[in-house]
């Protein structure tokens, strides 16, 4: 283990969902940053340059797709692995997310917090 923990950003407007994943990722010894809206997430991501971003889609004001587009346009985050966590399972939504530059699209209800947490290892090299 390195001294510096892997930095994970959670962008999620559902407070309970956010709390659930924060708890699990903390337990797995990651440094967890959280944002409850798209705008906030964008700000934190550019500033903190996390190693991985979990991004929700359905959010008021700025939705996940827009956040994704903007993150890919930012120098600091254009190569950051982004995993979409959404409960929309329509094919066109999944395609849209991947087209816009997401590395993976996961449907929340089909994965346990553990499985989601294990994705960090897939995308972040130690």
């Amino acid at each position: 283990m390195k001294e510096e923990k892997i930095k994970v950003l959670l962008i999620e407007d559902e407070k309970e969902v956010l709390e659930l994943y924060r708890l699990k990722l903390s337990l797995d010894d990651y440094e967890v940053l959280t944002a409850e809206s798209g705008e906030e997430g964008l700000k934190v991501a550019v500033k903190e340059k996390p190693d991985l971003i979990y991004l929700d889609i359905k959010m008021p004001e700025m939705d996940g797709f827009e956040v994704l587009q903007r993150l890919r346009a930012e120098e600091n985050t254009k190569n950051t692995p982004i995993v979409i966590l959404s409960n929309f399972d329509e094919q066109d939504m999944i395609e849209k997310g991947l087209t816009l530059g997401a590395n993976e699209y996961l449907i929340k209800s089909q994965f346990t917090p553990e499985q989601i947490s294990s994705k960090v290892k897939d995308w972040v090299k130690e």
């Binding site: 309970e16 659930l20 994943y21 708890l23 699990k24 409960n87 929309f88 449907i107 209800s109 917090p113």
Partner: peptide
């Protein structure tokens, strides 16, 4: 249907998530 299923899945995600943490001993 899309939104309704999304809305239904949200509490299910929370319920399932916490229960799995419980079961795993987290």
């Amino acid at each position: 249907v899309s939104i309704a299923s999304h809305e239904l899945r949200t509490p299910l995600t929370i319920i399932n998530g916490y229960l799995s943490l419980f079961i795993n001993g987290d």
